[in-house]
Amino acid sequence: MAALADPAPAVPCFYRVASRREDTGDTVTVELTEPDGPVPAFTPGQFAMLTALGVGEVPISVSGLGDSGGGRARRLEHTLRAVGAVTRALCAVRPGGLIGVRGPFGTGWDVASAAGRDIVIVAGGIGLAPLRPVVLTALADRSRFGRIVLLAGTRTPADLLYSGELEQWRRDGVEVAVTVDHADSGWGGEVGLVTALIKPAGLAPGNSVAFVCGPDIMMRVTADALAALGIPAGRIRVSLERNMRCGAAWCGHCQLGPLLVCRDGPVVSYDQAAALMRVREL
């Protein structure tokens, strides 16, 4: 067996949970710090393999880079939905507890490449988490971009992530529209599929870069709708979720046709992903 060229990505570092916020009934955002120095620099869209001690490891995209500057340690934020044994255990870690981190892995959203254009962000459910750094990056360098349009879909109003931040982003000039599948009596917003938000947004397809994240089927119908509007597939980016294990393109668990998603993704352009997302056995 060949020796690993770089064993470092296989060894988790243990970071401390500095803060923990319950976003929804089953979703938690944790802020991680490395007691002995800065955590590695992630870029928006990249993911880490997070370890719950004694339970297991899962791939989770970064939801905040937490670079607070001013000489303070860099922090890393991850938003986790408790849907399995590992994510339930990770969600249960309280401030002061430890979480194993390997990474950063994979490709990022490449927000800088949208300079001079409108940014169109479409999120489905928990897919808003990996897109949060796109909003924050664009807002931090606001003059470099045109419109920032955020369209988010979720099952119910109670499932909406970052509801407080969405209001702040609105005040900061982000055009935010949210739709839900099932509304309660207090909901004053839209009800329907996330793609129904696209036409009323009045996008300029020739001058837009789109960032789409959510479950596969949501990304597919959304990217198709954006492409039908006239945004070139090469300027529509999606974040693929596959069975990432090693994170370093060694094990092949996350293979999607010619791609090893942990290395060649998770963020890929839709001209690459469209055909692969339609293959039954991939």
């Binding site: 849907v83 399995g84 928990i126 879909g153 599929l193 089927i217 119908v221």
Partner: peptide, 11 residues
């Protein structure tokens, strides 16, 4: 598509 529970993750 809404019947498919579009926002459910594979997990």
């Amino acid at each position: 598509l809404r019947l498919l529970d579009l926002y459910a993750s594979p997990a």
